[in-house]
Amino acid sequence: MKNRQALSSSKKAQIKFGETIAIVVVFIVLVFFGLIFFGSTQKEGIQEQLREKVQLDAVSVVKEVSNMPELHCSIAQVEELNCIDITKFASFKRLFESDIYGNQANMSYIHYFGDSKIYYTQVYPAGEPGEVDDEGNPVEHVLWDNHIDENTESSDEMQVPVVLHNPVTDRRAFGILFVKVYSRSIE
């Protein structure tokens, strides 16, 4: 009789202990799901912030490029707004490729342009030699293209209408300056 009572009380204790373990397990599972939910909310927030940052960076690069003395047209010692001197553009581009200053220039301007692509196309007069490719698309005159890797998101391409001025021939054309900023996506 005593043995049976002891056995029954041991079983009760085991059941109680099992219940305690079960509660702890359920609690851990709930905390775990809570953390996953919290993490995913945080991730969405970070992704949203990242998207905003990419857009802000794009605006910032557009402002930088539009105001660079390296590209500005000068008419009678006055800087013309939204105008690219195509001879300055060509020299600026060659600076990045030069043996002596290429590295220094890349290190300096990456600070301003970051991971982006900056180029212009001529839109009027359209179809001039050298301004369209074999398929009839406008040629992209690329100043800067720093694409970190394939798994990157890019901002919407920002477009700024510009005047393209050749000071040697004093010829003007209309073009569009494109700026696209890249950033790594969060998996």
Binding site: P69, E70, T87, K88, A90, S91, I100
Partner: peptide, 16 residues
């Protein structure tokens, strides 16, 4: 920055 500008000015002016 002036040195890099000087490079660009030289390149541009020599070509023009």
């Amino acid at each position: 920055a002036l040195q890099m500008q000087a490079w660009m000015q030289y390149d541009r002016i020599a070509r023009i």
